[in-house]
């Protein structure tokens, strides 16, 4: 038996909890009830938010009749649409970079022989530094270096805190990692690279996906650091910056309309890709 085959056999082993365990069926009901309740809580305000996108009145808190006029207004509002696009660009880049750096940092920290308090503090710091301190600090730095600011400087800044969150999730997963399978793989002659992709990566994958989702979600909603590091121009305005600036004269349901579309499109895209996947498997 070659080393490669053994490794394949090893990684194929652990199935999802419950899925392969006999008797799981009987225990499905409580799980379903839990999911129903939690998702009900998560989507209750979303239902209100969607409803308000059809509110004729511009006031965010009182209902005055059904209307689709905010969707029409949105279609003609280039500012909001561009801001939404910028937000997506920033979040995608920040997520990609922070997921790679955060995962590597987690691997580095968890495989060290001796824990270093300095390193631990460094990895925690981005989560506890008040946003305003980081915002002022980065803007001072970028201006001192005479950098031209724009979406790229927002990405650089968002990676700082995103990376800490990714690192933290991946480290939590690594705490239960069975390092003996790595040793076994090495003993069987697999290279470090093969071992990483065949053994370590698949085990870490759920944490990496979770970390990336976290980073993306944080970046999409971040306002103050983006405002400070975006530069002065109009072309680097992100959606949270646009929405917060509407506070003084009232946030219109256009924003609700946009959120409704964003969530609707994302959900549809996911369902289609799932369906295509299934078709392929067949």
């Amino acid at each position: 038996m070659s080393g490669q085959a053994t490794i394949d056999a090893m990684t194929a082993a652990p199935p999802a909890v419950g899925a392969a365990v006999p008797g799981a069926f009987r225990r499905k009901l409580p799980g379903r009830i839990v999911l129903l309740v939690v998702f009900g809580f998560l989507y209750l305000p979303i239902a209100v938010l969607v409803l308000l996108s059809f509110n004729d009145s511009g006031l965010p808190t009182s209902w005055s009749g059904f209307s689709t006029r905010w969707y029409v207004a949105l279609a003609g509002n280039g500012d909001i649409l561009r801001a939404a696009w910028n937000t997506l660009v920033v979040a995608v880049f920040a997520t990609l970079i922070s997921t790679v750096l955060g995962t590597l940092l987690a691997l580095g920290m968890e495989t060290r022989r001796r824990k270093s308090n300095g390193l631990e503090a460094l990895a925690f710091a981005p989560m506890v530094i008040p946003d305003i301190v980081l915002a002022v600090a980065l803007l001072s730095l970028f201006s001192r270096l005479n950098l031209t600011m724009g979406l790229h400087t927002i990405v650089v800044s968002h990676v700082v805190f995103d990376l800490a969150f990714v690192c933290s999730v991946v480290r939590a997963r690594l705490k239960n990692f069975d390092y003996s399978i790595v040793e076994a793989s090495r003993d069987l002659g697999a290279s470090g690279w093969t071992t990483f992709w065949r053994i370590t990566f698949p085990v870490l994958l759920p944490a990496i996906v979770a970390g990336a989702l976290l980073a993306f979600t944080l970046s999409v909603d971040e306002f103050i650091i983006a405002f400070f590091t975006a530069g002065a121009g109009r072309s680097s305005i992100t959606l949270p910056m646009q929405i917060y600036s509407m506070i003084r004269f009232g946030i219109t349901p256009e924003v609700n309309a946009l959120a409704t579309i964003v969530m609707g499109v994302s959900a549809t895209a996911l369902m289609i890709s799932q369906w295509l996947n299934k078709e392929q498997v067949r």
Partner: peptide, 20 residues
């Protein structure tokens, strides 16, 4: 890859409250 959002070509950049 993020060249969008750098220096502007306009003659004037004005910051104000939205809708003002």
């Amino acid at each position: 890859s993020l060249t969008a959002g750098t220096a502007s070509a306009a003659d004037l950049v004005i910051s104000n409250w939205d809708g003002y």
